[in-house]
């Protein structure tokens, strides 16, 4: 009777899922089609007063249809879920990649130089708490392109955790390790890559992990605003179509992709972590 803890946890998770889905299924009142109503019922308005939330079985059916053909494109408002996801992931990676290109070297500089830290700190402190979506109108006006504006919003929201964590990690490298670099006559560049980078890597990757999480949260909202393509737009479009089944399915997909992005950085984090 001694099951491993992981197996026990998996069984409990499945049980909770089953209970939750059954309760949801049972809670949804049966809908009757208008054609099934008698004339009297139609006259009296005796059909359901309110459209119900679709049951999990309907969501599952929709998932099967959508996932069986995820990459179709039948016009601007009818694209497969895979295509929409690809747009969103591309935007996130583009904005995130640009942010990393700037945040990592700049964070290194700030971490190494107390002067740069003091000079840039006020800007960071003011810019960091701004909701990324607040930049949207300005971005649209200046960039004059909704796609690029969405990427800019991702850029601006993912830069801060990376920048701050890189600076923090670099500044916190133990003096002993820097002394090891000095007594071995390592140049500045080699010290940066062979001592400071590995020493600060766990902190830097933590910042990158936080950033990718925020970027994935923000892209949904940004795409609802700019429209056109992407999983956020898809959710809003299906809401306008009153197709809640698709909305629920899309919500689940957003969760799964977010989990996958986080798991990737979790794996990187384990790879670079060390214990003293």
């Amino acid at each position: 009777m001694t099951m491993p803890l992981r197996l026990q946890a998996a069984i409990l998770s499945l049980a909770l899922l089953a209970v939750g889905l059954l309760a949801w299924e049972a809670a949804v009142p049966r809908q009757t089609l208008a054609t099934e109503l008698t004339e009297l019922e139609l006259l009296m308005g005796m059909g359901a007063q309110r459209a119900g939330v679709p049951p999990p079985s309907a969501v599952f059916e929709r998932a099967v249809t959508m996932l069986s053909d995820p990459f179709y494109v039948r016009g601007p408002n009818d694209k497969g879920i895979g295509v929409q996801l690809a747009y969103s992931i591309w935007r996130v990676l583009a904005g995130y990649g640009l942010a990393a290109l700037i945040a990592l070297p700049l964070g290194f500089l700030i971490g190494m130089s107390p002067l740069a830290y003091r000079a840039l700190d006020p800007f960071i402190q003011v810019l960091r708490p701004i909701s990324p979506l607040a930049w949207m109108p300005l971005a649209l006006f200046i960039i004059r392109d909704s796609q690029a504006s969405a990427i800019f919003v991702i850029f601006i929201c993912s830069i801060w955790p990376m920048l701050i964590n890189t600076a923090f990690g670099v500044a916190g490298v133990r003096k002993d390790w820097l002394n090891v670099a000095r007594t071995h006559e390592l140049g500045a560049l080699r010290t940066a890559f062979t001592v400071i980078l590995p020493a600060a890597a766990p902190t830097i990757i933590t910042g990158m992990r936080i950033s990718i999480g925020i970027a994935w949260l923000v892209i949904v909202a940004a795409e609802m605003l700019v429209g056109g393509t992407g999983i956020g737009y898809f959710v809003w479009n299906e809401w306008n179509n009153l197709d809640l089944t698709s909305v629920i399915f899309a919500i689940l997909v957003i969760g799964v992709v977010g989990m996958a992005l986080d798991a990737f950085f979790g794996a990187v984090q384990r790879a670079v972590s060390f214990s003293e």
Partner: peptide, 26 residues
């Protein structure tokens, strides 16, 4: 500092992300 003067610190100052061998090859 110079490589002509090697230092052994009380707290060892090994680089914790490298194996013992890699610390020496470093």
């Amino acid at each position: 500092p110079s490589l002509d003067r090697g230092v052994v610190f009380q707290n060892y100052s090994l680089l914790p992300w490298l194996s013992a061998l890699k610390n020496v090859t470093f």
